[in-house]
Amino acid sequence: MMRWIRPRALQQQGMLSMNQRNIDYIGRYNDRRAYPLVDNKLKTKTLADTWDVPSPALLQVVKAQHEIHQFLDYVAALDGFAIKPAKGSGGKGILVIAGREGNDFIKPSGSRVSLIDIERHLSNILAGLYSLGGSPDVAIIEALVRADPLLSRYSHQGVPDIRVLVFKGYPVMAMLRLATAASDGKANLHQGAVGVGLNLANGHALNAVQFDQPIEQHPDTGLPLKDIHITQWAYLLTMASRCYEATGLGYMGVDLVVDAFQGPLLLELNARPGLAIQIANGEGLLPRLNAVEALPRPHLTPEARVAWAREQAAPSASGVLCSRPSTRRDGVPA
């Protein structure tokens, strides 16, 4: 009987469904004109710079087939970098190179990639293989993010990233995504990455799921996931919240990484964030979304919004979020 759940039970927990997300949130709060800002990573980076949201350094942009050779010359001097299709979605087409060995490049997984493979990958990106609707694309080359060792020890290869769901500028839910062997070093939940729900008040772990199933320990590293907590939490949430002013998107996912040297960096924005964050948090989104919608007067600064959101999530607060006590908060020190 664990395999199915009644719709009424889901409703009671305030679980947001895919259809409702599309109609009531994405359709209503996300202006289509803003989509190119988030669907194109190059534009996102420029925009983030304007709004003082740091992101990994942009090394180069490959726009045309003939530039690939120049790039290959240039890249010879680099140790680590990430190649991304500007219009890619769902982590498709991202190639991370962590180091070099002779003429070959080494992926974080340890597998080798030849120069020819990279050339082909770039030309695939340019032809639009990974872009939405197959339109021609450009490849951007970013500096490699060196993950904060505090976090990266939880992750099997790859850099853990933090997804913050921002609704009308308010952070409403957050989770940490850890790559696993099953996800091939990628941080996408549907590919098998571990999602760890984060307490919005303090950045401490709540629960963890893999393939939508609850887990206690990381499947590869064996470390207990309950101990995770994110440092610079308020700053990180403020960064996410600021993206609302930058894009105007009412309902979006902000993906951040914590770099060992530069601190939190913006990886990408997502105008159609997934629903798995609810399972990772063990809580439905609807009560929180409704609380934001019911605000009589929105807060004007990202800082004020973050403060409000953290207050709502704090165990001591008597907001709508705590109207239903749940087991998850008992196990977490505030």
Partner: peptide, 16 residues
């Protein structure tokens, strides 16, 4: 409303 597959997908929520 919920899709049929979501009733399966969100089944872990029974714990909470």
């Amino acid at each position: 409303g919920y899709k049929l597959t979501e009733l399966r997908r969100f089944a872990p929520m029974r714990r909470y």
